[in-house]
């Protein structure tokens, strides 16, 4: 029952042969494509650790069946920025200590990138807190996360790159 599909993964076209229709996007990334930056925290769409962008919108990759993604454009944490050229959201998370253990961090960052491209008002921290509330951080780094999203949104607005994600 292998299923062939094509998707654009972090900007590159990928042909994927699914060995099993039950495979989620999250398990495709982690267990089959060696993209382990995206994390599994609950596998139920309740924690946000697995957040990636599909066609520019944030989704819980654990709730997305891989087989539904033929032709889709998927961006994961590995495709957002690099150590040498961090995305503004990544840089702001470091600067504001927006993480501790780091496990929810890829999901937080992808969610923040998605939120900013949704047209977030950087001067409205309540809206940021609300918009980031699908991403649980058990360490409690919310204070830094909110500041980081705010700063990244400002910086990206100034640079005119809201859709850079």
């Amino acid at each position: 029952m292998p299923l062939s599909m094509t998707l654009t993964l972090n900007g590159a076209a990928r042909d994927v042969v699914l060995d099993d229709p039950r495979v989620t996007l999250l398990d495709l990334l982690r267990e089959r494509l060696d993209l382990t930056g995206t994390k599994k925290g609950c596998d139920r769409g309740q924690c946000g650790a697995c957040t990636v962008l599909v066609n520019g919108r944030r989704v819980n990759s654990c709730l997305t069946l891989a087989a539904t993604l033929d032709g889709a454009e998927v961006t994961t944490i590995e495709g957002l920025g690099t150590a040498a050229a961090l995305h503004p959201v990544q840089a702001a998370f470091i600067e504001h200590d927006g993480f501790q253990c780091g496990y929810c961090t890829p999901g937080q960052i992808m969610s923040a990138a998605g939120l900013i491209s949704e047209g977030l008002d950087a001067e409205d921290p309540e809206r940021i807190r609300e918009g980031m509330s699908g991403n649980i951080c058990r360490c409690g780094a919310y204070h830094g996360i909110t500041l980081a999203v705010q700063e990244a949104a400002r910086r990206m607005a100034a640079d005119g790159q809201e859709d850079a994600a």
């Binding site: 060696d34 920025g81 990544q90 470091i94 961090t105 960052i109």
Partner: peptide, 21 residues
Amino acid sequence: VTRRDGIAKVTGDADYAADHS
């Protein structure tokens, strides 16, 4: 001092147990 493991954690490079196969 800013976290020395910050870049690894924001880029997805930081490896946790279940990332190994």
